[in-house]
Nucleic acid binder design. Structure first.
Length: 303
DNA sequence: TAGACGTGGTA
DNA sequence: TTACCAAGTCT
């Protein structure tokens, strides 16, 4: 479908072969890549892993993913949980709105998709918390379909190999087209190319260090060929965390996760926070996001 | 489109 | 110690 009848150029087939050989030899043994994981949890397992991997390092996801799928092995199972249980189980993975989105996505899958994660990219995009990356990752890694999958690792490898730049520019639709041109015709080979580009960016062609001696694309890398020009770094800076509203939100939610019955007197949450206006702002925004409920003079995780 | 949104490891 | 970075998404 996404191939639109196009035949991949010989160049793409050759690069795919290099990437495939390298990937089969050097890919990390990650849980969601194991056949028994796919057999046991299917597309749901892939979907949950991709939610957790959004901006959270692999090493931190692995134990949480196992615990999560042990507790809720299917969308139907998760759909019966309360938001409080979900936010508590999410623990310290960060960006807890993802837990709520995953819970809501499970509800939609249970109600509208017969309890099975959808296969079509459009249907996946319609689920809460699923965007361009996650939708294609599920379609490709769970169902084996032929689509370009573009994450931050892939964008960095494309910037270097194809455009001769040290860092990618702002995300754009062009990224998807760049990656589409890398895909061989064969679906399984195309999935491997997607995975291999991500893996290269994660282990060889990093943001802070590179190991070009280990890279299967070194001979065709435009950045290497040009002598590693630094160019202009247009990456957006991450806002300071210390003293931020985010830090206040994190502290408030952590207190509620650890509290008995996940509830506390309202004036006990962030009681010693140095900036009272910031404290109010943080709690109000948590309520607006559905991560916290105000109940009389108490704050609690939502039921 | 730029900024908000957690948390902890690494240099 | 500070700053960067991590399989993004939403508004």
């Amino acid at each position: 479908m996404s191939s639109a009848g196009a035949t991949a150029p010989a160049e793409a087939e050759r690069t795919a072969s290099l990437l495939g050989d390298w990937y089969r030899r050097h890919a990390r043994d990650l849980p969601w890549r194991r056949p028994e994981f796919l057999e046991r949890y299917g597309a749901w397992g892939v979907l949950v892993s991709e939610f957790m991997l959004q901006q959270t390092p692999v090493s931190r996801v692995i134990p949480h993913l196992a615990a999560w799928l042990d507790r809720w092995p299917t969308p139907d199972a998760l759909a019966t949980a309360t938001p409080a249980e979900v936010v508590h189980q999410w623990a310290n993975l960060g960006y807890p709105r993802r837990a709520l989105w995953l819970h809501r996505a499970a509800g939609v899958i249970a109600a509208e998709h017969g309890g099975t994660a959808p296969r079509e990219v459009e249907a996946l995009l319609a689920l809460p918390g699923i965007g361009d990356y996650t939708a294609r990752a599920v379609a490709v890694f769970a169902y084996g379909d032929r689509h370009p999958v573009v994450d931050t690792n892939t964008r960095r490898v494309l910037a270097r190999v194809r455009h001769g730049r040290a860092q990618p520019g702002p995300p754009s639709r062009g990224d998807l087209e760049d990656m589409r041109r890398m895909l061989p015709d064969d679906r399984e080979a195309a999935a491997v190319v997607n995975a291999a580009m991500m893996e290269l960016g994660a282990t060889v062609c990093g943001a802070r260090s590179t190991d070009c001696g280990s890279c299967p694309l070194a001979d065709e890398c435009a950045w290497r060929g040009a002598g590693y020009p630094q160019g202009e770094d247009r990456r957006r800076r991450q806002a300071r965390y210390e003293g931020s509203d985010r830090q206040a939100r994190g502290a408030a939610l952590r207190a509620l996760r650890h509290a008995p019955e996940h509830r506390l007197p309202a004036d006990a949450v962030l009681a010693d926070w140095p900036d009272p206006a910031q404290r109010d702002r943080a709690i109000d925004s948590l309520i607006a996001d559905g991560l916290v409920e105000a109940d009389d003079a108490e704050l609690r995780l939502p039921h």
